[in-house]
Measured scan of single mutants.
Amino acid sequence: QNEKLANELKSLLDELNVNELATGSLNTYYKRTIKISGQKAMYALKSKDFKKMSEAKYQLQKIYNEIDEA
Rank of each mutant, 00 (worst) to 15 (best):
L5N: 01
D49N: 08
E3P: 03
K4T: 09
R32F: 10
Y30K: 03
R32D: 08
K46W: 09
N2G: 08
V18H: 12
D68M: 15
K48E: 04
K10W: 06
Y43G: 08
A6K: 05
T33L: 15
E15W: 14
S37N: 10
Y43V: 14
K57C: 06
A44H: 01
L5Y: 03
A44S: 03
L13E: 00
N2I: 15
A41S: 02
K4C: 07
Q59F: 14
K62H: 07
Q59T: 05
D68H: 15
D14N: 10
L21E: 08
D14S: 08
E3H: 06
S37L: 15
Q59S: 07
L26S: 03
D68E: 14
L9F: 01
N2A: 13
K48T: 04
L21Q: 09
I36S: 06
E66D: 05
A22P: 05
E3Q: 08
Y58W: 09
E8G: 03
E69Y: 11
K52A: 11
E3R: 07
A70K: 06
K52L: 15
L13A: 00
E3D: 09
D14K: 12
Q1D: 13
Y43H: 14
I67Y: 03
Y29W: 09
R32H: 10
A22Q: 09
Y64I: 13
N2K: 12
A6H: 06
T28S: 14
T28E: 15
T28I: 13
G24Q: 14
N19T: 08
A6S: 06
A44V: 02
K35N: 06
I36H: 06
E15C: 14
L12M: 05
Q39T: 08
T33P: 01
A56G: 02
S25T: 11
N65V: 06
G38D: 01
L5P: 00
K4D: 09
S25P: 11
Q39C: 13
M42G: 03
F50G: 06
N19L: 15
Y64T: 04
E3A: 08
D49W: 03
K46S: 07
K35C: 11
L60A: 01
D49P: 00
L5S: 01
K4E: 09
M53W: 01
L45T: 01
K51I: 10
A22D: 04
M53G: 00
K31Q: 12
E15D: 09
L13D: 00
S11F: 09
I34C: 03
Q39M: 13
L9W: 00
D49I: 04
Q59C: 14
L21M: 09
D68C: 15
R32K: 11
L5D: 01
L16R: 02
K46F: 09
E55L: 09
E69K: 13
L13S: 01
A41Y: 02
K40P: 00
T33S: 09
N27A: 11
D49A: 02
L12I: 03
T33N: 08
N2D: 06
L45Q: 02
M42F: 09
L60C: 01
N27K: 08
Q61W: 06
K51H: 09
S47F: 05
I63Q: 00
Q1W: 10
E55A: 09
Q61R: 05
F50M: 08
Y30L: 10
Q39I: 14
N27V: 05
Q39K: 10
R32M: 12
L60D: 01
K51P: 04
N27W: 04
Q1E: 12
E55Y: 08
G24P: 04
L12Y: 02
D68I: 15
Q59A: 10
M53S: 00
Y43E: 15
E3W: 08
E66W: 10
D14T: 09
K10V: 04
N7L: 12
N19E: 05
K46R: 09
L5G: 00
N65P: 01
Q39F: 09
A70M: 10
Q1T: 10
T23H: 07
K31E: 05
K35Q: 10
A44K: 01
N19C: 15
K31S: 08
R32P: 02
K31D: 03
L16H: 03
E69H: 13
L13F: 03
K40I: 11
Q61Y: 05
S47G: 04
T28R: 12
K10E: 06
G24F: 07
N7R: 14
T33A: 15
K10Y: 04
N19M: 15
K57H: 05
G38T: 12
A41M: 01
S11N: 10
K48D: 07
T23R: 06
Q39S: 06
A70L: 09
K52T: 07
E55Q: 08
S37M: 15
L21D: 06
V18M: 12
N65E: 10
K51M: 10
R32L: 11
S37C: 15
S54F: 09
Q1P: 09
A44D: 01
A56T: 02
Y58S: 10
N7S: 11
A44G: 01
A44P: 01
S11C: 12
T33F: 12
T23E: 04
D68V: 14
K40H: 06
L26Y: 04
L9E: 00
S54T: 13
N27I: 05
L45I: 07
I34W: 03
E69N: 10
Y30Q: 05
K31A: 10
T23Q: 06
Q61S: 05
K57N: 03
Y58H: 11
G24R: 15
L45R: 00
Y30A: 03
I67K: 03
E3C: 10
K31G: 06
L60E: 01
E8Q: 07
S25E: 09
Q39E: 10
A56M: 04
E8Y: 05
Q1Y: 09
R32Q: 12
E20R: 10
Q1I: 12
E8P: 01
L12H: 00
K62S: 05
Q61P: 01
K35E: 08
L12T: 00
Q59G: 06
L26C: 08
L26V: 03
N65L: 12
Y43W: 12
S37G: 04
M53T: 01
K31N: 05
I36T: 06
K62M: 07
N17M: 13
N27Y: 05
S47K: 05
A70Y: 07
R32C: 14
A6E: 10
K40T: 05
G38I: 15
D68A: 15
K48G: 14
I63F: 03
D14V: 06
R32W: 12
Y29R: 05
M53V: 01
D49L: 03
K4A: 09
K46M: 13
D49C: 04
E8R: 03
E15N: 10
L5C: 15
Y30D: 03
N65S: 10
E15S: 11
D14H: 09
E55N: 05
L9P: 01
Y64R: 08
I34S: 01
S37W: 15
L60R: 00
L12F: 02
D68R: 15
Y30V: 04
D14Y: 08
L26G: 04
N19K: 15
E69W: 12
N2V: 15
E8A: 06
N27M: 06
A6I: 10
S47N: 06
T23I: 07
I34M: 04
I36G: 03
R32A: 06
M42V: 09
Q59V: 07
Y29V: 04
N27H: 12
F50S: 07
N65I: 08
A56N: 00
S47P: 00
L45H: 03
L13M: 05
K57M: 12
L16K: 02
K48L: 12
I34G: 01
D49V: 03
L12E: 01
E20F: 15
